[in-house]
Amino acid sequence: MSERDLDALLEDCTQCGLCREVCIVEALGAHSITSLLCGEEQYSSWLCSSCWRCQEVCPQGVDIHAIIMEMRREEEPPPGHEANLVNVLRSGYALPVDSGVNSSRILHSLEPVQLIPAKWLEILLQGREGGKTRG
């Protein structure tokens, strides 16, 4: 993301700090995007519980989620997130759905999972902008 794009998203932020006050990551002693919003340099856009509380309390209506998503595309992803991405690209689900999963489902009287056809997944995720998908 260019500095101009980030500036546009941050335009209405007054650095009041309410987002940081309600952030679980900050309460645990680590630094989330809310530290960036408060002018700090030490933070990670990946340290987020996706609870949306920061955005909900923001009196200025800053789209903090959009900032996180934009920043993440420029920061190195943690292995857990990368693994989920690879799984979605392979099978359509973030966690592997194999025969063991279906056996367990049958034991619980649930129908087996019918995965998305590989060709459909390719169309949905590659399309004309295939280069945008990392992983």
């Binding site: 998503m69 991405l85 359509g92 999972v113 019918q114 998305i116 056809p117 949905l124 945008k132 998908t133």
Partner: peptide, 22 residues
């Protein structure tokens, strides 16, 4: 259950706008 359903798209959103297509 929805036959052939896939991931909601959330794990993709941090990487690509194609999450919306899924």
């Amino acid at each position: 259950n929805i036959p052939h359903a896939a991931c909601c798209g959330a794990p993709l959103e941090s990487f690509t706008d194609r999450w919306l297509h899924l």
